[in-house]
Design a protein around this nucleic acid. Structure first.
Lengths: 207, 207, 207, 207
DNA sequence: GATGAATGAGCTTTCATTCAT
DNA sequence: AATGAATGAAAGCTCATTCAT
């Protein structure tokens, strides 16, 4: 078992809580929920195992905290980037492009988020995670709703549309992160953004 | 722990292999890979635990066999339904509609397929499962390729397009299966088909 | 930590269930419920730890089984010895004498039984143990009831009388077993029997 | 986990030592030694966990202190009530009645005292607790000795007699405290006192 | 082919105790 | 005198897998 320790000097500037969360994010992302042990996280965060439990009631709570914290950061970032006033279609493109970019950038969290939504986490924690997902989809839905109200978007079922958007993004980003090259280069991100935008904006069918 | 046994008279017409696979499908689908134990599967299939290992080398191999067999049946069904000669756009709609219908119909398998692609299955078995997914996406890609070659579809990146299609279908069907109403009624399926078709064919943006 | 293994040749004539129960009886008696670990019992019974759990659902269930089985054997023995037809007062003395003798003989079980009735065993198991105690007290009550009905005994509250009898026996036997000399010799048993009989039959106060 | 805090205004009039002892008494009595954690005691006593260790070297020492302090208070009370000059038989009845009354009144301490004499407390502390018990029995023995010397009581083995007395009182009071009605009412106490007095004074046998 | 008792490595979790502040 | 974050040894329990029958 190879455990890469978090860079020492970074650790010194973190509280234990932070370094636990950091370590958890990394290892959950690499190995998935069930193949990650609390021992590994403790080792990687350079704290005693008891310290994990002093800060988080259980493995699943730590997991939920990891995902929640990570996704909320992503959502906050997207929100910030979308604040500018732009024509709707530009706005829509921006939504897609920054979502995809942040998905790929925060690959550790999103990998967990996309892949581990089921798989035997206890119910409390699972509920918490599903709530983040709902929040994220609700967030997308708002933009779509605005577009529909102003007549820019077709009056499709909003829930399904938002789900569709998220589904595309999940699938493409996850495949990208799974492919052997590893680090998401800009070229790949641009390809994904273009394809997703074209499909969602104008569909696949010609003229 | 409630284990619903498979209907007795059905069991009598099955080989042990089949009843194991049947039981595995049901339980993996209900509880996910990690929360399913070999004891439960044996109990539900009404065979001894040793018999599981007599037929499948390990839990993960049994899991892989379950998914593979299930998805291949779905793919065969889709192929069969697509054999008729139709104008391309009708063909495309048919692809979507029967994919979605079969996804919802075979909810046990597809639930597993969508949710458990990561999560700590050993590598051999994981590879096998990923191969089924590749096969499925390749299968979608073919139809898209035909459409592009004949000029019906825009010349988008084919891999990404196929992934996008599968991603939308995964997301919408899984959400449907997850929602409290439980049994997938036709109304819901039709909604999904319409929305997916509209989006993929003509996009979300108006005129 | 010193674990005395059960005599090898005896082990060969036992089923694993029996040797587990035997080992559990010995170790629970020596160290009490909480200081006994499942590892120790497994080691002493010469089975794997998993085997304990294959046969008993939990530590507390194993404990309950140990006490129940042991006490029921004692009760069966007392019953057998009381079958003869004797004048009531002889019968009463016999009840006391064989109870005390068997308490001291089966010191492993009775030590557990007297000392561990509270102390944090989970509720299911605790209920089971308390039921054995009730059964034992009920058993004593019957003899007292007979004596009262026939006019040999004073019409005292039967529950309290039975409790009193058991309380005296518990206290004296337990003190005896606790005292450094260890092995309960006949002299001590006879002293206890005489004292208990005198007190319970005729009281402490002089004529 | 429900922790009832000690009444605030009472707390203000106590030293930390006292409030720790008070909290310990309550919680040890409710849950037994092993199911009580130092966290709970600290919480209930409204001090930090470190403060527990500042005042008592270990959990078992705190436990021993709790029992010792409580039992010594009971013994002091009994002594005080027995100071009056009475005919021996009245004196004997008074010994029983005030012992039983105080047992039931101080149910928190006596419950601990009766139930937790074994169960894995470390040896130093255990010795201390056993000493209190010896002291209590010695205390009873004195009264019995006086009675024997003056010819009021039969010349039975004094140790065993004292043990018998304590055994009866333990068993009846503990059963009473364990029974669902909860609060020990006077009726119950009187029943116990009468029964115990009759049995110990004149025995169970008629005429 | 089929069985199920037996295994033991490995996991999460608990909690008395310590010690820098 | 008092604190409470941090510790880590130790425990109960799970379950995929094996193998004698």
């Amino acid at each position: 078992m190879v455990i890469r320790l978090i860079n020492k000097t970074r650790l010194e500037h973190m509280t234990k809580q932070q370094s636990i969360l950091e370590a958890a994010k990394k290892i959950f992302s690499e190995k998935g929920y069930h193949q990650t042990t609390m021992d590994e996280i403790a080792l990687s965060a350079q704290v005693a195992k008891g310290t994990l439990y002093y800060n988080y009631a259980s493995k699943s709570k730590l997991f939920a905290a990891t995902v929640t914290e990570g996704m909320e950061e992503i959502m906050a970032n997207i929100s910030r980037e979308l604040e500018s006033e732009l024509p709707f279609i530009e706005h829509f493109r921006l939504l897609l492009s920054c979502t995809i970019r942040l998905y790929l950038q925060h690959s550790e969290v999103t990998r967990i988020y996309v892949n581990e939504l089921s798989s035997g986490i206890d119910n409390d924690a699972l509920t918490e995670i599903k709530n983040v997902r709902k929040k994220f989809i609700g967030f997308i839905k708002e933009t779509l709703a605005t577009g529909q109200e102003r007549g820019y978007l077709k009056p499709l079922n909003r829930d399904l549309s938002a789900l569709a958007l998220v589904g595309i993004v999940d699938a493409l980003c996850n495949d990208r992160l799974d492919s052997p090259t590893g680090s998401p280069d800009d070229q790949a991100a641009d390809d994904i953004i273009d394809t997703v935008f074209t499909i969602l904006a104008t569909g696949m069918v010609n003229g």
